[in-house]
Design a protein around this nucleic acid. Structure first.
Lengths: 235, 235
DNA sequence: GTCTATAGCAAGATAGAC
DNA sequence: GTCTATCTTGCTATAGAC
């Protein structure tokens, strides 16, 4: 079992001594609890500090900004995601099952936070925010997540066009982002529509990927991949 | 100049008397000018009020929040989209050209404001906000936009599977939302990557849509459409 | 290296008098 | 409708204690 998700390059948040680590954890836990209870926007740094029994300055000593509190939270969720996905990755070699399983696990780990996920989703939507899934600061968590999808692909028996296979883990991660986007907007009880989407779209994608080697589709796929490579890099 | 864009159901912003309407317009014009000059974040409500020669409270009397100032602005831009798309819709019957043309027009009209478009985007990304493109309140604007894509489709010579054709305008609009999402994150000079995406993805989509009638793809398309119908309605 | 206390800034937003 | 005064909040600064 992999213990360590790659850490976000979020910058040093001091925790040299044991006492320091404890204080930092206290602040983080307090903040996340309050976020869950009252939402992100409605929870002020002053309130977090008061509730945790520390000075405001102390909170800022450990976390450069309010948003960085959530960044840490992302890391935790990502680590849980991998753990939650482990069973299905050990149990099936069917691509559709493995993909659906990892997506399921992703939504499951986020489920307890659906209520306040919306309140900080708008923060994550800002391209300039370190919270953006595309930002440099979240590169660590992103790479760890992509690696999880690579694992889902590699352990499957699906036959994939060689060029497509190279890009597929990142594309699967993109699909995951799409699922999260849907999930955030999903108002059905228990977000059951999101699960419906996963369970029915995964086999569809598996069939489409299998068909990627057909002569009719291959040139289309190749051109799409070429476009993707042009678009990927910044600037 | 088009007076009325489809209104966002953004709520009443008082303009009872003639003088009131004048004051409101003054505040709006001043704000938009300053946004364009210095960006959204760098323009404070105090500065807007001072520049317009009114009190801060007065600005808030007409606009519930700083973000609502942008909303009004966005309405104006939206109105330009249809006008900007008119030439290409009158000039070609090729589906790829028409789709690319409408998408181009959409990005073009937004282009001058890319720098502070992210500010609006943050608000629109919040599922609870009436400004969300998926919200009930923005249904009017959304339908108008979808109608524009329906026009792009109907005026083209492309052959489409009957069931797919029914859903295609909405799917094209969804693709447009995706393009905007990409555009907001696009840091390349002049957002040239967004134009690259449009110009190369549109022909690809056209080919894919044409192929939707092939026996290999048809069942896949049918199932995807069935899923789409299950997911569309709220709750 | 940790942590407190307090003061203060600029900004978004509001209350209530006129 | 319009103003002034005030509140709240993210965040910074400083100075010092253990």
């Amino acid at each position: 079992m992999t213990e360590q998700a790659a850490t976000t390059g979020a910058g040093a948040e001091p925790a040299a001594t044991a006492r320091g680590a404890q204080t930092r954890q206290l602040i983080l836990d307090t903040a996340l609890r309050m976020f869950k209870e009252h939402g992100y926007a409605a929870t002020s740094m002053r309130a977090v500090a008061r509730e945790a029994g520390v000075a405001v300055g102390n909170a800022y000593y450990y976390f450069p900004s309010k948003e960085h509190l959530i960044l840490r939270f992302y890391d935790d969720v990502q680590a849980e995601h991998r753990a939650a996905a482990a069973p299905v990755l050990a149990g099936s070699t069917e691509f559709a099952d493995r993909l659906a399983g990892v997506l399921h696990a992703g939504v499951d780990t986020n489920a307890p936070y659906h209520a306040f996920a919306t309140s900080f989703f708008k923060v994550a939507a800002d391209p300039d925010s370190p919270l953006s899934p595309f930002s440099a600061e979240s590169a660590g968590a992103r790479q760890a997540s992509i690696a999880l999808f690579a694992e889902a692909l590699d352990g499957s028996t699906i036959k994939v066009d060689a060029q497509l296979r190279e890009e597929l883990p990142e594309l699967m991660w993109l699909a995951y982002m799409g699922v999260i986007l849907f999930w955030v907007h999903d108002r059905s009880p228990g977000q059951r529509k999101t699960y419906l989407l996963i369970d029915r779209a995964a086999p569809l994608l598996a069939r489409l990927i299998t068909m990627s080697r057909l002569p009719v589709l291959r040139p289309l796929i190749r051109e799409a991949l070429d476009l993707l490579r042009h678009l990927r890099h910044r600037t």
